[in-house]
């Protein structure tokens, strides 16, 4: 098992840091899956996480100038590692002006992801900082636990409003209530609602648009068959939603959510070379 990668381009480095920061905000520990083309950060659905799960996918080619990996075997050319993303985030935090960042899988005292940062210095040679991030190597028999979650059979899929506005609304609502109701229809309308003894607040978004998911028979599901007015709704833990909105630094070009009434809300944030999926289960 080998893994070695290098980032030289500053813009790529900063972008990669932002993705890692986002992951670090959303998960205390997560699984890093490495394949020849992609990196995945995975938080699988565990009760300890409040049933939240995350799936983040990056094309390595868009971030790394060098990327070599050899999995356990030729036919299973992948590596699964468990790590604390905060460590990676911290290692990259002081690498903002680096000449190069190398990431390497090592095994000195224990398996580590070594992040070596080459920084400019006043002297003739560069300053080198290394961070040995302990990782756990996940054996192959457990790989099945980290399958990509399938997109749920949702009732409504809708584009999200400007995330900054949504974040601010959810932040205020979080001061007032522990849970929030998300409801939306296929007319591009979405409501965020809270209700307590003291106050009820509803924020109405409209003209958001519904993404054209292709159904099995090839025609667009949003246009036909369904009642456009019918509202799908789910009540979720407001802190989990706030965490996503406050933690995300990927600046998505597209953001959408799929609602399975009373079961789950599935968020998808898309950037050209990053996709982040986040699943928040509905409260009873």
């Amino acid at each position: 098992m080998r893994f070695r990668a290098k980032i030289v381009d500053l813009a790529c480095l900063n972008h990669f840091s932002r993705v890692i920061n986002t992951i670090a905000k959303l998960a205390k520990t997560c699984t890093l899956r490495l394949t020849v083309c992609k990196l995945y950060f995975i938080l699988s659905d565990k009760v300890a996480n409040g049933g939240v799960s995350m799936w983040c996918e990056l094309c390595q080619g868009n971030f790394f100038d060098e990327f070599h990996m050899e999995g356990v075997a030729a036919e299973h050319n992948e590596i699964y590692l468990e790590l604390v993303p905060e460590n990676l985030s911290r290692a990259l935090k002081t690498a903002q002006s680096a000449k190069a960042v190398k990431i390497k899988l090592t095994n000195k005292h224990c398996p580590c992801l070594r992040v070596a940062v080459e920084l400019p210095s006043l002297s003739s040679s560069s300053r080198i900082v290394t961070h040995d991030i302990p990782v756990g190597v996940i054996p192959r028999r457990l790989w099945n636990d980290f399958r990509e979650p399938s997109v749920p059979d949702f009732d409504v899929s809708i584009y999200l409003p400007v995330l900054k506005t949504m974040k601010s609304v959810v932040e205020r609502m979080k001061n007032l209530s522990n849970s929030i109701v998300i409801e939306a229809n296929l007319r591009g309308e979405m409501n965020l609602k809270i209700e307590t003894d003291l106050v009820s607040v509803t924020t109405h978004f409209k003209d958001l648009g519904n993404p054209p998911w292709a159904s099995e028979d090839g025609c667009q599901s949003s246009a036909q068959g369904r009642d456009l007015e019918r509202v799908a709704e789910a009540r979720i833990d407001i802190k989990k939603l706030q965490q996503l909105l406050a933690g995300q630094q990927v600046n998505p070009t597209k953001a959408l959510c799929n609602i399975v009434s009373k079961r789950i809300v599935h968020f998808i944030l898309l950037h050209e070379d990053v996709s982040l999926q986040y699943f928040i289960p509905a409260l009873a």
Binding site: V84, N87, R90, A91, H109, C110, P111, S121, L122, S123, S124, S125, R127, I128, V129, T130, H131, D132, I133, P134, G136
Partner: peptide, 16 residues
């Protein structure tokens, strides 16, 4: 536990 702690090390060249 070594498997829990991130170790950061930095080298400064003599001429710094």
């Amino acid at each position: 536990e070594p498997s829990k702690t991130m170790v950061t090390e930095l080298w400064l060249a003599e001429d710094e």
